[in-house]
Design a protein around this nucleic acid. Sequence first.
DNA 1: CGGGATCCGCACGGATACTG
DNA 2: CAGTATCCGTGCGGATCCCG
Lengths: 137, 137
Amino acid sequence: MPTTTAAQRRSSAKAEYNAFLAGCPSRELLARISDKWVALVLAALAEEGPLRYSALARRIAGVSQKMLTQTLRTLERDGLVTRTVTPTVPVTVDYALTDLSASLQHVMMALKGWAEAHMDDVHESRDSYDAIASEVG
Amino acid sequence: MPTTTAAQRRSSAKAEYNAFLAGCPSRELLARISDKWVALVLAALAEEGPLRYSALARRIAGVSQKMLTQTLRTLERDGLVTRTVTPTVPVTVDYALTDLSASLQHVMMALKGWAEAHMDDVHESRDSYDAIASEVG
DNA sequence: CGGGATCCGCACGGATACTG
DNA sequence: CAGTATCCGTGCGGATCCCG
């Protein structure tokens, strides 16, 4: 019988990953989830529950089929969405969040929400920054 | 006296921005903050307080001077970090979070923390996904 | 020390055409 | 409907050199 519990081993395992380090796998994972399409897909599924491919494409205006498919594939591979094929004619495909992405959805909605909520502040900051830059330059 | 409160006006202003729409400015802002270097810079400043350029570069291993400078410039322009130059010899430059980024720092640390905490889960999911793909293909 | 400027590869991502 | 395959531009990002 081990002297450490599963929770202890997991928490020590967590400590092994540090995204500040260049070679750490969590750096690459952070890069993957730091993606606007990932944020929008997870936010859409979080807000509206399971969605079909075409519904996702409509919700996330301006996304190309390639990027939507590519994003969904990597999310599926990483265990962040499930892909359910219903053999109707034509075929129906539903995407949904997983237990794993449940813990991430709040972060993604917060990220999207922040961008929408503070757009005006950022715009103001840019204007004053550009104004100073142009009068100096 | 207005019939709407400040909070109501702010929430209606927020409703004007929707990152799901292709042309919406918040879409571009979401894309900007959905960036691994942005996440790491804000997380570093959140964890350790104001940092010098060289300290940031050391903390965020593997970042090039170009990307670090470029990231810091856009963050400064967007009002997410302050840049303080102290005219010592040689010159000292400190970067710090702003009031605006205070509301974003939690999201960024959560993002980085999630990547570190769930790296094992994602790895497992990838393994099983690849195993199935290879036996099917 | 804290950058700016430049060159350049290449991978990200859009557009288009085709398929089960 | 839900993709796959392919071509191709461009801008992200690393490497290098230089400066106040």
